[in-house]
Computed example of a mutant assay.
Amino acid sequence: MNTFLKEVATLLIRKIKTEIAEFDHWTDKQETKAAIDNLIRDTLWAELPACYDKISISMYRRQIYEYV
């Protein structure tokens, strides 16, 4: 399971870096911040196993977004 989570984290950070690279000062506009937040949400929902509930995914989403 830890290996799987590490793969999801690696995939997510790669996606975030690719998306952020397309923007100049991505934190300046609400639309670009929302795009990154949605990317995190969509990736977590698509990649994490079903044992992760809505509350957990929301919490992780917020923590990841704040980290980025």
Score class of each variant (00 low, 15 high):
Ala50Val: 06
Ile20Leu: 15
Ile16Cys: 08
Leu39Gln: 00
Asp42Gly: 04
Asn2Ser: 13
Val68Ala: 09
Ile55Asp: 05
Pro49Glu: 05
Ala46Tyr: 01
Thr10Val: 11
Glu19Met: 14
Glu47Arg: 00
Glu22Met: 09
Tyr60Gly: 04
Leu44Cys: 04
Thr10Pro: 01
Thr18Met: 11
Met59Glu: 06
Ala21Ser: 14
Arg41Val: 15
Leu48Tyr: 01
Cys51Pro: 06
Val8Trp: 01
Arg14Lys: 15
Val8Met: 08
Pro49Leu: 03
Met59Trp: 07
Asp28Trp: 05
Asp24Glu: 13
His25Met: 12
Ile55Ala: 10
Ala34Ile: 08
Tyr65Ile: 11
Tyr52Met: 03
Asp28Ile: 03
Pro49Asp: 08
Arg62His: 04
Lys17Ile: 14
Asp37Lys: 10
Thr3Val: 15
Arg41Phe: 13
Ile13Phe: 13
Asp24Cys: 07
Asp28Gly: 06
Thr10Leu: 10
Leu39Tyr: 01
Trp45Ser: 09
Leu39Pro: 00
Lys33Gly: 05
Pro49Val: 04
Thr10Arg: 04
Met1Ser: 14
Lys54Thr: 12
Glu31Asn: 09
Phe23Cys: 01
Ile55Thr: 13
Lys54Asn: 06
His25Pro: 06
Glu19Cys: 15
Asp24Lys: 10
Val68Cys: 11
Thr18Tyr: 11
Asn38Ala: 07
Val68Thr: 10
Glu22Leu: 12
Cys51Leu: 08
Lys33Arg: 12
Ala50Arg: 04
Leu39Phe: 02
Gln30Lys: 11
Leu48Pro: 00
Thr32Lys: 02
Cys51Asp: 12
Ile57Tyr: 03
Ala35Phe: 03
Ala21Val: 07
Met1Gly: 14
Val8Gly: 02
Thr32Gln: 10
Asp37Met: 06
Ile16Phe: 12
Ser56Gly: 08
Ser58Pro: 01
Glu31Thr: 15
Thr27Cys: 10
Thr3Glu: 15
Leu39Ala: 03
Leu44Val: 05
His25Ala: 14
Lys29Pro: 06
Glu66Arg: 06
Arg41Cys: 13
Gln30Glu: 14
Gln63Met: 06
Tyr65Glu: 07
Asp53Asn: 13
Leu48Asp: 02
Asn38Asp: 09
Leu11Gly: 14
Arg62Lys: 07
Trp26Phe: 13
Leu44Asn: 00
Ala21Leu: 11
Glu22Ser: 13
Glu66Met: 05
Lys15Ser: 12
Lys29Trp: 11
Thr27Trp: 09
Lys6Ser: 15
Ile40Glu: 00
Arg41Asn: 12
Glu22Cys: 11
Leu11Cys: 15
Asp42Ser: 09
Glu66Gly: 06
